[in-house]
């Protein structure tokens, strides 16, 4: 006999050996991870990494090729009626039924989930997402940014416990992006677990407690954002020199230094476990005249590029 109600002590999402193949090779290759209840979890990866396919399998938009997805302890195939009520999804592509107004569309969407219309909740979403002035407009007439806000309102209209946001800020202006993240944090503080994908790695770094980096259908790294930055990131010492150099000093070749700014800026990656002070000692012994010193902290983008090999592959959108 299986559980028929959501277990609040279970992980919000548990994925085990999830697989998917379309016509060619596997696009999701047996990935496993968990999202704890109340967590904001980031799933990052370049285009084509398999993030959206994974999300679509979680949401039920795409059939699962292999493995298992559990939402609050419930199987998302066997107990789909319950798991879909617990889940809200904002898709990457703008998909909206253009026939209806914002208000009507939200009422319809809450009905799809089998919940009573809650006017207070609906109005709160409308106000917080700045949709009030456009309430009577047919959705086809809204701007791209408004459509994206509408999609967030739709994802939240049935008060899901797990919210999946697939690139929620793509093509959204800076002001809306900030207000959106504030709103997401507020929802998370109220107990909703969040699975987030974004191309804005700085935002992922700020928002997510844990991060998984995915590429070619596999998880390359999965850990706390802070420990990922500490473990994989490399600090850099940036020296602004008084006199230009023709080439990086050969004595520092083991550090793989970079010389930029017409020979006036020398960047030295600090080896893991090494202190900046040791490096400064070696620099001073070379007699270099330094005007300014700056320590650059590691960021997610560097780690992401290193892990996914985007730079070596000719770049690409992160």
């Amino acid at each position: 006999m299986h559980a028929t109600t959501a277990n609040q002590t279970s992980p919000a999402l548990k994925i085990t050996d999830l697989r998917k193949r379309f016509d060619g090779p596997e696009v999701v290759k047996g990935i496993s991870f968990e999202i704890r209840a109340g967590e904001i979890f980031g799933l990052l990866g370049p285009n084509g990494a398999g993030k959206s396919t994974t999300i679509n399998m979680i949401a039920g938009v795409t059939r699962i090729g292999g493995g298992r997805v559990e939402i609050f302890g419930l199987d998302n195939v066997r107990d789909y009626r319950l798991t879909r009520r617990l889940t809200g999804v904002m898709h990457q592509e703008i998909v909206i039924d253009n026939f209806f107004t914002i208000d009507r569309s939200l009422r319809i969407h809450s009905g799809y989930f089998g919940v009573d219309d809650d006017p207070a909740w609906r109005n709160m979403l409308i106000d917080r997402l700045g949709l009030r002035p456009h309430l009577g407009k047919v959705i086809i007439k809204l701007s791209g940014g408004l459509k994206r806000r509408m999609m967030i309102a739709k994802a939240l209209i049935h008060k899901p416990k797990l919210l999946i946001l697939d690139e929620p800020t793509a093509g959204v202006d800076v002001e809306l992006r900030h207000s959106l993240w504030d709103f997401v944090r507020e929802i998370n503080n109220q107990g909703t677990s969040i699975l987030l994908t974004t191309h804005y790695l700085e935002e992922a770094e700020q928002m997510c407690e844990r991060i998984a980096i995915m590429n070619h259908g596999e998880i390359l790294a999965l850990e706390k954002t802070s420990s990922l930055l500490q473990r994989c990131g490399r600090r850099e010492l940036v020296l602004q020199l008084k006199h230009p150099l023709a080439s990086p000093p050969p004595e520092l070749a083991d550090l793989e230094p970079r010389l930029e700014g017409e020979g006036l800026i020398l960047t030295l990656p600090v080896p893991r476990g090494a202190a900046s002070g040791e490096l400064l000692g070696r620099i001073s012994s070379l007699g270099l005249q330094v005007a300014e010193i700056e320590t650059r902290q590691p960021n997610l983008e560097d780690i992401f590029i290193e892990m996914t090999g985007l730079k070596n592959n000719g770049g690409g959108e992160a």
């Binding site: 889940t87 998909v95 039924d97 969407h109 989930f113």
Partner: peptide, 17 residues
Amino acid sequence: MSRYLGNIVDLLVTPIS
């Protein structure tokens, strides 16, 4: 039209049997 425009996903994510 729902398939063509992609808004069929609005239904696919719901508990409609």
